[in-house]
């Protein structure tokens, strides 16, 4: 079958590739671009380990073809830290012990980043609702909820600081 030309922006960088139409977006990220932070868990649209942001919306990259993302802008877990500084959500997972084995973590973090972009101060219920599509077998979720609350507080503090304070 004929290949398809795609132009996809990932973490602010534009990539042009010839791909097979059946190439899943998660394989494009991992195998074409070497961005292995996005994990493949269940491969059946249930576990959320492959979650990325597609134009700021959380989606499961195992349930999309790369060709569907042509012309779109993606963010993966690799795109969060800036200048060696962890994103507040990453920092929250670190500080609040939001992970043990770490397998679900990149997808979990991307869902949370998606949540906090839409809702800066979510309730515990809203946090649990937002990570409903991300399965964690280690933590029992409580520490993840704590991590999200940490991140929300941190981001609220950052927003309060006068411009140029850091």
């Amino acid at each position: 079958m004929a290949g398809a030309h795609v132009s996809i922006t990932v973490n602010g960088k534009s990539y042009e590739r010839e791909v097979e139409p059946r190439l899943l977006l998660v394989h494009f990220l991992r195998e074409e671009l070497g961005l292995t932070g996005t994990h493949i868990g269940c491969d059946t649209s249930q576990c959320g380990a492959c979650t990325i942001l597609l134009d700021d919306i959380a989606v499961k990259s195992c349930t999309m073809f790369a060709v569907q993302a042509d012309g779109r802008s993606l963010t993966t877990v690799e795109g969060l830290a800036q200048g060696g500084q962890l994103h507040p959500v990453q920092e929250g997972f670190w500080e609040e012990h939001g992970l043990q084995c770490g397998y679900c973590t990149p997808g979990m973090i991307m869902s949370v980043v998606g949540l906090l972009q839409a809702n800066a101060s979510p309730s515990e219920q809203e946090i649990r609702h937002a990570i409903h599509g991300n399965l964690c077998r280690c933590t029992g979720y409580q520490h993840i909820v704590n991590a999200v609350q940490y991140a929300a507080n941190k981001m609220a503090e950052g927003a309060k600081q006068p411009i140029g304070a850091d």
């Binding site: 649209s45 959320g48 979650t51 919306i57 959380a58 989606v59 499961k60 349930t63 999309m64 869902s111 998606g114 949540l115 609702h129 937002a130 409903h132 599509g133 991300n134």
Partner: peptide, 9 residues
């Protein structure tokens, strides 16, 4: 339906 990511697509 499903979960957040499923509903987004």
């Amino acid at each position: 339906i499903g979960d957040v990511q499923v509903r987004n697509r």
